[in-house]
């Protein structure tokens, strides 16, 4: 469904991506692994059109996304959940969700506010609170819920477990499984191998902006030198 081929990108003079290739199939959860600065976030921003791409190809259902602005990329059915919980701090929870709302699409599950409040009960209690009044975990839930309001077919989840309490990480794992059961595809960037293994079907490892490994977690376990080389800190 989503194909990235040999993508390169740069910030100013610094080359960040050096030929990233990956695919995401329907109903699949893929973990994009790598150390800090490996290019995980930049890959996601590139797919969403938030970082200027230099060369390569990004296709969604065979259609090139290379020249589209972010809002058009969102409208083809790709949802983006940024790292660092970029909620709108001075909007209420409900208003945050309203910003994400898009018309339902035939090829993806439809999310309503009520349905999302069932999935994220904490948010339901705080629907009239401002975004900045939420805890870190609640903010992370809100970013995901806000993206789901757009009824996406596939979601790019950038480091959802970063900087939140272990109990919330567990909740997050449930949410991702729920998304998969609903029929969504998820591309998940992670540094937490344990978390990634619990929710993903397969793994992709990048380092210095280039692909280093692609395969199942079983294959990854068979080759410990790979995790040692690209993931261990």
């Amino acid at each position: 469904m989503l194909e990235v081929v040999n993508l390169t990108a740069r910030y100013g003079r610094a080359q960040i991506l050096n030929g990233v290739t990956l695919t995401l199939a329907q109903h699949e959860v893929v973990a994009l692994l790598g150390r800090n600065g490996a290019g995980k976030t930049t890959t996601m921003k590139c797919i969403m059109g938030l970082v200027e791409k230099k060369a390569g190809e990004i296709r969604y259902d065979g259609r090139s996304l290379m020249k589209l602005p972010p809002h058009m990329i969102c409208r083809v059915g790709l949802g983006y959940v940024p790292e660092e919980r970029r909620i709108f701090p001075d909007l209420t929870v409900e208003e945050n969700l309203e910003v994400g709302r898009r018309p339902p699409r035939a090829d993806a599950p439809e999310w309503t506010e009520d349905h999302l409040f069932e999935l994220f009960p904490n948010l339901a209690e705080r629907r009239r609170n401002l975004g900045k009044q939420l805890s870190g975990g609640e903010q992370q839930m809100l970013t995901i819920a806000r993206t789901l309001m757009g009824n996406p077919r596939a979601v790019l989840l950038d480091e959802p477990s970063e900087g939140i309490a272990p109990v919330i990480v567990e909740q997050m794992a449930k949410v991702i499984t729920e998304l998969k059961n609903e029929g969504l595809s998820v591309l998940l960037s992670e540094q937490n191998l344990h978390f990634a293994r619990a929710v993903s079907d397969r793994a992709i490892i990048i380092e210095k902006g280039a692909l280093r490994f692609e395969g199942s977690f079983a294959e990854l376990d068979d080759r410990p030198e790979i995790s040692q080389q690209y993931l261990a800190v």
């Binding site: 969403m48 059109g49 938030l50 602005p69 972010p70 809002h71 990329i73 969102c74 409208r75 983006y80 940024p82 970029r86 709108f88 701090p89 001075d90 909007l91 208003e95 945050n96 309203e98 910003v99 994400g100 898009r102 806000r146 993206t147 757009g150």
Partner: peptide, 19 residues
């Protein structure tokens, strides 16, 4: 609501499908 969101984080509004 969209206007207020855009004053806080323009790129995010764009990535949520708003032109």
């Amino acid at each position: 609501v969209l206007v207020r969101a855009a004053t806080q984080d323009r790129d995010m509004v764009d990535a949520l499908g708003v032109n």
